[in-house]
Amino acid sequence: MSALGAVFVREARLAWAGGGGAAGPAAFFLAAITLAPLAIGPAPDLLAAIGPGIMGFAALLSVLQSADRLFGDDHGDGTAELYLLSGVTPSWLVLAKVMGQAAATLWPLPVIGLVGALMYGVPVAPAAVGALASLAAIPALSLIAGFAGALAAGIRRSGLLIALIATPMMVPVLIFAAGAGRAAFEGDERALANLLLTLAVSLGATALAPFGIAAALRSRLA
């Protein structure tokens, strides 16, 4: 197996075996979208209007929820050193790692987002656009979480710090991804533009974030 493939498979397997895989983010997502109507009230019009936005917001929180595991363990158990000395280009390696973890843990988010939007009374078409947008947002969200996670790796109770660092960086992708569902719901023709912008941010993050993550990992070993 190629080295990058090996990293992808291993990280997916570790996320699955060690951290319960997709169960954590999925359960968190479900809890968040269950609580929101209880706080806001059951008015159907209101819930349908905020549905696409709440789905994007809850997906973002679910990604943050597991972000401390992304690089925290590697920092403590000596894996980070081994990765940097493995001879595999570090930026490619961390990209494979983050994608492996994301594939294992985040795949239910678009599905729950679709079901959740329908439960909020969002019509099928805009709900599907929102789910598609959250799928397009996952690379950006998980890479940003990875960057924050690498910066804060191994710090005690790093979850809060990671959330604080990652939140401002997730602003654009949240705006575009949630905006896609919102625009589709309102019949605004900018839904497609939002969807494409989400994809653009994910591509940009894929191109740039690995360098940042590799540099962050290295800086934490100095």
Binding site: I165, P172, I175, G179, L197, L208, G212, A216, S219
Partner: peptide, 19 residues
């Protein structure tokens, strides 16, 4: 590293928030 990433981020944030 975080501060340098921040400047890139703020540019994109500015654009996205305007949008």
């Amino acid at each position: 590293i975080l501060a340098m990433a921040g400047i890139l981020n703020l540019v994109i944030v500015k654009f996205s928030v305007d949008w």
